[in-house]
Design a protein around this nucleic acid. Structure first.
Lengths: 152, 152
DNA sequence: GATGAAAACACACCGTA
DNA sequence: TACGGTGTGTTTTCATC
């Protein structure tokens, strides 16, 4: 487990919010010179505290207005079945996230589609035909708020 | 809705995977000069196709080894109740995502904790006491795969 | 698409605790 | 040994042509 001091936490929180901020701006904000801030960020990256930097796309503006969460129960839960299921799910382009979970459902999928008609197509032709898929529960996303989390 | 050509889609997909790539590397990959690639990315940002750039933290390495998804049903669902609930949820640092959804549950929360004992504390002292919260379902995250989505 | 100024990065080196 | 500051070469960004 990685130990962080106060400044590391502030840097990570700031960058988790907006990764476009540069080392000199962050340094000014937290009382460091540009190289000092840069070295800390570099050290956090090398130490594995940072998984990566990603662009967040505006899927709605890009024509994908519908996001649905699917809870999926597997009918058969053997080892092979899990792998078959995961491999088949990974081949569906509309699936953004595959979460293997413990609880009432076995998997949770985040699926995007152009509209509800498009989602129905994905559901009928892609999801319902997945190997081993049993019961499916759907929740349509109305709105979403992302928060910094306990580190921010 | 924003219209994209083939190259725009490739640029967005590449950056959604890894936003550290610079304009000249992307240009080389997709047959553009560095300024041409840079201008396209700039245009996509200004046009609103891009929501932002974020650092993805390695929450496990940082001491938060447990992620739980909570489905929450509200007991009372008046307009006031929704707002009260959302405001109260936003004050819990362990909550990373608040999703207002349509279906069997009203909200879906992504919660991180140091371990299961820590999660129990959050559940008992924070979640169960939320105003209007009724039934709660929990799913512990085992593993997660993020995929580029239909644009990638 | 090419060019060049401005900005940011990335490293070496030194000082301090 | 660990961390921060200063100075500086290099790379990237970004505007103009």
């Amino acid at each position: 487990m990685i130990e962080l001091d106060e400044i590391d936490r502030k840097l990570l929180a700031a960058l988790a919010r907006d990764a476009t901020q540069n080392a000199s701006a962050l340094g000014r904000r937290f009382g460091l010179s540009q190289p000092a801030a840069w070295r800390r960020i570099r050290r956090l990256q090398d130490g594995g505290a940072i998984k990566g930097r990603r662009l967040r796309l505006n899927t709605e503006a890009l024509g994908f207005g519908v996001t649905v969460f699917l809870g999926v129960k597997l009918a058969r839960k053997g080892r092979v079945s899990l792998e078959d299921f995961e491999r088949a799910v990974s081949a569906i382009p509309e699936v953004q996230t595959v979460e293997h979970i413990l609880g009432l459902y076995d998997y949770r999928l985040r699926v995007v589609a152009r509209d509800l008609a498009d989602f129905e197509r994905v559901l009928r032709r892609r999801i319902m035909t997945l190997p081993g898929a049993g019961e499916v529960e759907a929740n349509v996303l109305l709105s979403e708020e992302r928060r910094p989390g306990p580190l921010g």
